[in-house]
Amino acid sequence: MPADTAAPGPEQAYFDALADGRFMLQHCDDCGRSIFYPRALCPHCGGSELSEREASGRGTVHATSVVRRRPEQGPPYNVALIDLEEGPRMMSRVETIAPEVVRIGMAVTAVIDRSGDDPMVVFHPAESSS
């Protein structure tokens, strides 16, 4: 008999929403802070009353690197940490521009990339800065 649990869990719920085209953040109803990655308890206050809200998609580059490869493995690509407008930080990529020109402090906008096996959130330079 299945245990008495709320399913799907927060991690599965996040990826299910992403597959539906929505980038969701958890919001703690106790302390009011946003949470990423999705968890069972709020890491800020321990609260368990968590709701899901669609992310604004607005963010800022906090740190950036260019992963280099041998030529036969493909071109270099960006890996960045993005500070989301709601507060949390996430790892992602800034795409549509050369990886070397991604700058800390750059305004970026979330896009759901469906080109791979699983959808994932990547970022493009925000309209105002492009």
Partner: peptide
């Protein structure tokens, strides 16, 4: 699941 999709070369990146 929240980092590996972006291909950081770990632990270096």
């Amino acid at each position: 699941p929240f980092e590996s999709p972006y291909g950081p070369r770990q632990p270096i990146t």
